[in-house]
Design a protein around this nucleic acid. Structure first.
Lengths: 354, 354
DNA sequence: CTGAAAGCGCTTACAG
DNA sequence: CTGAAAGCGCTTACAG
């Protein structure tokens, strides 16, 4: 392993000087020709700083703890993780990831273990937009919540703009000609749903479409959707648009429509939120959906955390994974940011009634 | 932060003695009553060893680099990650995760960054069972490959037993009464496919069912399946069982069957491999599938790596996530292990012909 | 059985 | 402008 000592010996200066130069603190302190030779030698020898050593000394490990649940079961957690990783790498940090289980005493043990590595701060990534109480061992640690908000209002956070999702999905259905737009939701109380429904209502109202509570239905899960949608379709034969809380519900609509010989994109229009790729694509024609910005939330959260750690907002930093639109990200100065979501249109929704 | 110095002061011994005791090297070296008091003090003060410091000193960071691609797009990578994390935590290690992109020069930079943290070893997790050339920066690093094999035959590895998958899926179809079992595969050359087909052929032959190459079809993707399966069904109206390479193909069969009014579980039986949960469950009745052991591969790989790092095989260690059957895992002494896969039967395949 | 000392690789006042 | 020295928290021969 190449150390500063090796460089110092080769160039014929002290380790202090090498350290000064390699951490870019040499301006006006080290003669520029010597600095030059040090950098050159570092390059030639392939010097890589030992982060363990510098972390020990400075008490800054450049390690960020990434806590999530459900990495194992959905691809969405993975997207947040990838966004966080891209940002971390660009900013010179590394991610130690832990999969936590809600309400599990294991979690505390795992966070404690994480702290042994001198973690500078934490990202607490949630599987769905929810008000969140941070685990106790995180008290006093710099933490940013991704896809959720701090119940105590302290930790900075980023969430999708749920209202905008409802507004834009419904607007889109209206613009393609839908007049009777059902909302297929969940029976569970979720922040995401109230925001989206508010957007749905405002979109209807802005277009002078009367709101009919009869064509909103909340189901428990896929099985419940399958059980209850037939009667729902029977009761409302004039429905031409469906705004679905998620892919499970969009799937239920697809299935029921198929049974009735209704063609999506012709007889009815469907927009779901955050479909599993594999389902959205499998359906022919593919479902449209509003894409939740998981990657972007992970990416923003790390940028936010680093700006807290370093006391300044980092310069714009590259991202390797998705081509994100940086202009669309909230500024890192926001403490409780909302991010808008992309409507991903998989087909033309222009409706051709006979 | 509580350090050994604090404990030493409180108990009135030297730091050396504290270190000896807390790293369990005190047998016959420290009076047991003093050892007792040291442990007690550590507990009371909530001492947590600083891994940066011990890592710097011993050159063992207890950090494992977990390299995977595709964490962001499939839940399978997440399962490997979770298995690896559970094993790491149980063995006192931590995972630094990096999402690498194949044939990307970024990868080298990222691995180099990882090494700056004194990573003890690496897990190289592959998205599908494939022969793998390790990235150059991993040369000379302890590395275990999960879900793939080393093209050079050096690095230990674990893969699913593909032959057993084909054998057991086909046997299952035969046992439920199928006589004409189609294989729906992929046009792409994959280790997984050749193994599974070998199992399929052997199962047929063991039951005296003649092999008919006409009822094997390889498709490119979902769209290709949708395009070609109608003709395939037309040409072979006597098919009663389908062994599908993966969920995309099982989905194609499901769609075509639905168009024809064939009921899965009654008219035809279908087994796919490693269905996306969301698709397998959405289909009514749900598809059966052979579950790929992603969690177990990640779990085993870390155990293997740790046994290499420590020069001894670790005691059986707990796992927090899935309830895995440890007896089913290959021994850690294997260098190129195969792991059998579970057939997950979602419904009775007993066929009731009129 | 116990402690003083050296050292892992780095950073940072401080002295020259 | 440059270097000697101290120290981050730990481990490990070594001396007593």
């Amino acid at each position: 392993m190449v150390t500063m000592r090796n460089i110092a010996e080769q160039v014929g200066v002290s380790i202090s000087t090498v350290s000064l130069v390699l951490s870019d603190k040499d301006r006006g302190r080290v003669r520029s020709d010597i600095a030059q030779r040090i950098r050159q030698a570092a390059l030639e020898l392939g010097y890589q700083p030992n982060r363990l050593a510098s972390g020990l000394r400075t008490n800054h490990s450049r390690i960020i703890g990434f806590l999530s649940n459900e990495v194992a079961t959905t691809p969405f957690a993975g997207r947040m993780l990838e966004g966080a990783q891209d940002a971390a790498l660009a900013l010179g940090y590394m991610l130690l990831t832990i999969n936590v289980h809600d309400n599990d005493r294991e979690t505390d043990r795992e966070i404690t273990a994480l702290k042994q590595y001198g973690t500078d701060g934490f990202i607490y990534a949630r599987m769905f937009n929810q008000s969140t109480v941070l685990p106790a061992p995180l008290d006093g640690c710099r933490t940013v919540i991704a896809n959720g908000t701090d119940a105590e209002g302290q930790a900075p956070s980023i969430i999708p703009d749920e209202y905008h999702i409802g507004l834009c999905a419904t607007n889109h259905l209206i613009e393609t000609g839908c007049k009777r737009i059902a909302y297929i939701g969940t029976v569970h109380t979720m922040i995401a749903q109230s925001g989206r429904v508010a957007g749905y209502l405002d979109a209807l109202s802005a277009h002078g479409i009367p709101f009919d509570p009869e064509i909103m239905i909340n189901v428990d899960d896929g099985a419940d959707a399958a059980a209850r949608l037939p009667a729902f379709f029977n009761a409302h034969t004039d429905l031409d648009g469906f705004f679905c809380f998620n892919d499970t519900r969009a799937w239920g609509v697809y299935e029921e429509a198929a049974h009735r010989g209704l063609v999506i994109g012709k007889d009815i229009a469907v927009v779901g939120v955050d479909n599993h790729e594999v389902i959205a694509e499998a359906i022919d024609p593919p479902l449209s959906s509003v894409e939740l910005p998981h990657y972007e939330m992970g990416y923003w959260a790390v940028g936010k955390l680093v700006s807290m750690l370093q006391g300044e907002t980092p310069e714009p930093f590259p991202c390797a994974g998705y081509p994100i639109n940086r202009a669309q990200l909230p500024p890192l100065t926001d403490n409780h940011a909302k991010i808008t979501c992309q409507l991903r249109i998989k087909q033309s929704w222009f409706r051709r009634r006979p």
